[in-house]
């Protein structure tokens, strides 16, 4: 144990108030061919207020299903979903979402794309505009506010999508493999950026990825999922310094976490 490593000042599990609670949530898709697909076995999970939680697992293990359930985009088959201890169903205005692709509206400028949630939710325009410009500043796109999405690179477009997910100041942001389509170097930059945004905005982030290093690098806790049916194999507390940079991936401690997660998939003949 490298004693010199300053550990993240992370509140103990019990002390942190859960913002989202999944209780025995199960999802069965009624597939077109008649055979129902059990995408998610009953899973239970508590997401703490302000936490950065990553969900990692191979493709098809139900990560997107879990995220879309929390987002209220699909109905659950069984179980209870609570937000601030209230049972919820359907989308919540207090959540933001980032998809794998940017899903920008090409007829809107970058600024107007970021403002979309504020418009839909009818928030005060002047205040929202100031907030949107501030977010564009944070994601490093101030100079591009008046540009259109087709004038931006893929990485820049995804940063617009992140700014958009934050404009209505949601307590929870859900991200489904947001950097999956980006090249490795852009991805590293984006990972650093998203951590900075998380520290500054204080939002709870639920981040889905199929990359084990990304899950360890970003997460305060990593939820490891295995497929058929999708279930939670392990939840790992990542005890790494709060201020992480890319070099941390070369440390022993980082490697230990990566191997610990990988073991779940090797054992099942995956990966």
């Amino acid at each position: 144990m490298p004693a010199a490593v300053k550990l993240m000042p992370r509140p103990a599990e019990a002390a942190r108030t859960p913002i989202i609670q999944l209780q025995e949530i199960e999802k069965v898709y009624a597939a077109r061919d008649g055979n129902p697909v059990q995408a998610l076995a009953p899973v239970s999970l508590e997401i703490g207020t302000g936490e950065f939680l990553t969900i990692v697992g191979p493709s098809g293990c139900g990560k997107s299903t879990m995220l879309r359930l929390v987002a209220g985009l699909i109905p659950r088959t069984r179980g209870r979903l609570l937000m601030r201890r209230q049972e919820i169903s359907g989308p919540q205005r207090d959540m933001g979402i980032v998809f794998q692709t940017p899903v920008l509206f090409p007829w809107r400028t970058v600024l107007d794309n970021v403002l979309l949630p504020a418009e839909v939710l009818r928030l005060p325009p002047a205040k929202s505009r100031a907030r949107a410009l501030e977010l564009l500043e944070i994601v490093g796109l101030s100079d591009f506010a008046a540009k259109y999405p087709f004038e931006l690179s893929g990485g820049m477009q995804q940063r617009v999508a992140i700014a958009r997910s934050l404009v209505h100041e949601p307590s929870v942001v859900l991200m489904d493999e947001p950097f999956g389509a980006l090249d490795a170097m852009t991805r590293d930059t984006m990972n650093l950026e998203i951590m900075r945004i998380w520290r500054e905005a204080g939002t709870t982030i639920l981040f889905v990825t199929h990359s084990i290093p990304e899950a360890v690098f970003l997460g305060e806790r990593v939820v490891v999922m295995t497929p058929r049916p999708g279930r939670i194999a392990e939840v790992i507390d990542v005890e790494l310094p709060a201020q992480r940079d890319i070099d941390i991936v070369n440390t022993d401690r980082f490697g230990v976490y990566v191997r610990q997660i990988r073991a779940h998939f090797n054992a099942k003949g995956l990966d």
Partner: peptide
């Protein structure tokens, strides 16, 4: 595309 509809739906 379904994703644009989904985005709008997520915003109620």
């Amino acid at each position: 595309d379904a994703e644009k509809i989904e985005l709008m739906r997520s915003l109620k």
